[in-house]
Simulated assay, not measured.
Amino acid sequence: MKKVLHIVGARPNFMKVAPIHRAISERGALQQCLVHTGQHYDVKMSDVFFTDLGMPAPDIHLGIGSGSHAEQTAKVMLELEKVFLAQKPELVSVVGDVNSTLSAALVAVKMHIPIAHVEAGLRTFDNRMPEEVNRILTDRISDLLLTPSADADANLIREGLEPSRIRLVGNVMIDSLLGAREQALKLSTLKDLGLSPRAYAVCTLHRASNVDDPKVLSGLLSALVHVAQRLPVVFPVHPRTRKRLGELGLSSTLERTPGLRLVDPMGYLEFLSLTSQARLVFTDSGGLQEETTVLGIPCLTVRENTERPITVDVGTNQVVGTDPARIQQAADRIIDGHEKKGRVPDYWDGRSGERIARVYEEFLGVATPRLAAV
């Protein structure tokens, strides 16, 4: 059987790979190998997601850990070259825009192994973001470009990439969300935190542009404090953000702020239970912009741009930047009942993993009739 080698490295990757891995297993036409680079190595940021998503343990764990962009990319490349030589895959499947994604693509292209990029074509048009550089370079050298929405197709064609390489398959991360939502809602997360449905906000912050600049971070936190005066705010703190809060001496002040609840990072199901019942979400995460659109939860993206404009065009997302006054104003409107309504984008239907499995089979010449086409 021809072999597909999946690369995961950081928390956002797991929700995207799980439905693809499951669909390929169910169809039974391809062999699979799951490689975890260990770019995220904290149990709450990584290992627990495999359990929550029903994924098998990785076949190979590289244990790369943290480091600068150059250091992390180089370490992953060195180790993946050994893996590719030993495994001899016919296709390397990468997802998203983390350093492990680009590292795997660079190693594969130099070894003449075909590459499939899931979530291709997303753009902020801001090359100051390391994720944007990873996206552009990965798309340029990939053989299959699997897009979540029509705007991503348009970006790739505008950049001169051949339409024959592009497949609109929908948002595979939504497969995970729809498959896990019922189970997540059975958890006692809200009860344990003393919350009521639709009566609290959730915040996540992790991007360097937000948490590494003391002025920007302080402004964002002041906006949260304002909102916490009207609505409880639950803030699962990313390790990077926790470190910065400690360095700036802000941790104890925030923990004493009425209405603001700092908690440790959560597993996938626990966090989905929290976000799916929120009144409002603040985030600088790309994935949460998509999830809140499907869940119908108002989302305020505290960035100056987004690589997921469809969540703004048709979904519940608003890009509000990092100005505290603007964030506070937008939050107040939502709390007062003037929230943005949206709809679920096309092909975000929970069947993207099946579409991707079928594309892989066709590309490798091993299409199976076991399941109907989607």
Rank of each mutant, 00 (worst) to 15 (best):
T189P: 03
S149I: 10
R303G: 01
L217C: 07
A367D: 06
A228F: 03
I166G: 03
L5R: 02
R240W: 01
L185T: 07
H36T: 03
L274A: 04
E162M: 13
E270L: 07
R358L: 11
G365F: 03
E247L: 00
G342N: 07
A278W: 03
Y268A: 06
Y200D: 06
G179P: 09
T101D: 10
R22G: 03
L185E: 14
V4Y: 02
G321R: 02
K44Q: 15
K3Q: 12
V8W: 08
G321T: 02
T138F: 05
L62G: 11
R370K: 15
D264A: 15
R326E: 14
A330L: 05
R308Q: 06
V8H: 09
A180K: 15
I335M: 13
C33F: 08
A29Q: 04
G321P: 04
N127M: 15
A372K: 12
E90M: 07
S209R: 10
E291Q: 11
S252N: 14
L260K: 05
L185D: 13
T283N: 02
G121L: 08
A223Y: 01
V133M: 14
T275P: 02
A74C: 14
L102K: 06
P148H: 09
V234T: 08
R333S: 14
H226G: 00
S100W: 07
R261G: 00
D47M: 13
D313R: 15
Q229S: 15
K340V: 08
M111Q: 13
K3N: 08
V312Q: 07
F271Q: 07
L185S: 12
M55E: 11
V94S: 11
Q277E: 13
G65Q: 04
L254T: 05
L53S: 05
R326S: 13
L78T: 14
L295P: 06
H206L: 06
I174L: 10
C299A: 12
G286T: 07
V35R: 08
E290F: 07
R355W: 01
K16H: 09
F50A: 10
A180L: 13
M45V: 01
E132Y: 11
F363M: 06
V225Q: 14
S176M: 04
T275F: 09
D139G: 11
G315W: 02
D284F: 01
A120R: 04
N127S: 15
S188I: 01
E307Y: 06
E132S: 12
G353Y: 05
E119M: 09
M173Y: 07
L5C: 14
R123I: 08
I24Y: 04
A86K: 15
A331T: 04
Q39T: 05
A116T: 03
P369F: 01
S276A: 12
A105H: 08
V76R: 03
S218I: 01
R303Y: 05
E81I: 08
G67Q: 03
S188C: 11
R135D: 13
F50C: 12
I141Y: 11
I115H: 09
D52W: 10
N155P: 08
L122Q: 13
T101F: 06
S218F: 00
G179N: 14
H6Y: 14
P369R: 07
A57M: 14
V202L: 07
S196F: 12
H226L: 01
R244D: 00
T322H: 12
Y360M: 14
M45K: 04
A116D: 02
A199F: 08
S273D: 13
S222Y: 01
